[in-house]
């Protein structure tokens, strides 16, 4: 990712510019946190959320820069504007955290998640599941006479919608990766 020009600890990396309205309406934000890939760094991030009572809706992590040993943690969280700003500032204090980006306010971003869904059923239900999978561009990655495993990629609400449709058709298990997100454009 290239748009990493916001300095850690800088005062202006928030849309609220440190002047939140202190509104009490919850908002959903997607944060991208670039961290040194050292032992315990994920525990620090998760411990921060647990210790200070912040929400985690989804969290993904993987090394994205093997030479620089940098991992990218993508966190979807909810809170009031003040809480969101605190979360970012608190993340910024963690020593191995290099950068904190709020993709929700820094510009348009794309969010994708991968999910696998196991659907068990026979007859019409099985046919219907396949038909819907096709509409959602989900692919079949495993099948037996009585079951399918579908793989689907998309924004979280698309996956929610697909899972909702599969439920009456015999959905028995879901595995989701959590959100990965990038800013659009350059």
């Amino acid at each position: 990712m290239s748009a990493l020009h916001i300095k850690k600890g800088a005062s202006k990396h928030s849309a609220y510019n440190l002047r939140p309205t202190f509104s009490d309406v919850d908002e959903r934000h997607t944060l991208a946190v670039l961290v040194e890939n050292e032992p315990g760094v994920l525990a620090r991030v998760i411990g921060l959320f647990a210790g200070r009572g912040y929400n985690i809706e989804s969290l993904t992590v993987a090394e994205v820069d093997h030479t620089g040993h940098l991992s990218r943690i993508t966190i979807v969280t909810t809170g009031t504007p003040q809480v969101i700003e605190q979360i970012k500032a608190q993340l910024g204090r963690i020593v191995p955290v290099h950068e904190v980006h709020d993709l929700t306010v820094e510009g348009a971003s794309v969010e994708r998640e991968l999910a696998m869904l196991k659907v068990v059923g026979e007859g019409d239900k099985r046919v219907e599941a396949l038909r819907l999978a096709d509409i959602f561009r989900a692919s079949v990655v495993d099948s037996t006479l009585g079951s399918f495993v579908f793989e689907i990629t998309g924004a979280p609400d698309k996956i929610d919608a697909f899972a909702d449709l599969m439920r009456p058709l015999g959905l028995v298990e879901v595995a989701r990766t959590g959100v990965a997100a990038l800013l659009r454009g350059d």
């Binding site: 600890g9 005062s11 440190l18 002047r19 939140p20 605190q86 500032a89 608190q90 910024g92 204090r93």
Partner: peptide, 17 residues
Amino acid sequence: IDPSSINKVIKADIPIV
């Protein structure tokens, strides 16, 4: 010096990190 101290409790009209 700590951005997380600012606006944590009291909203700052003039924040200086």
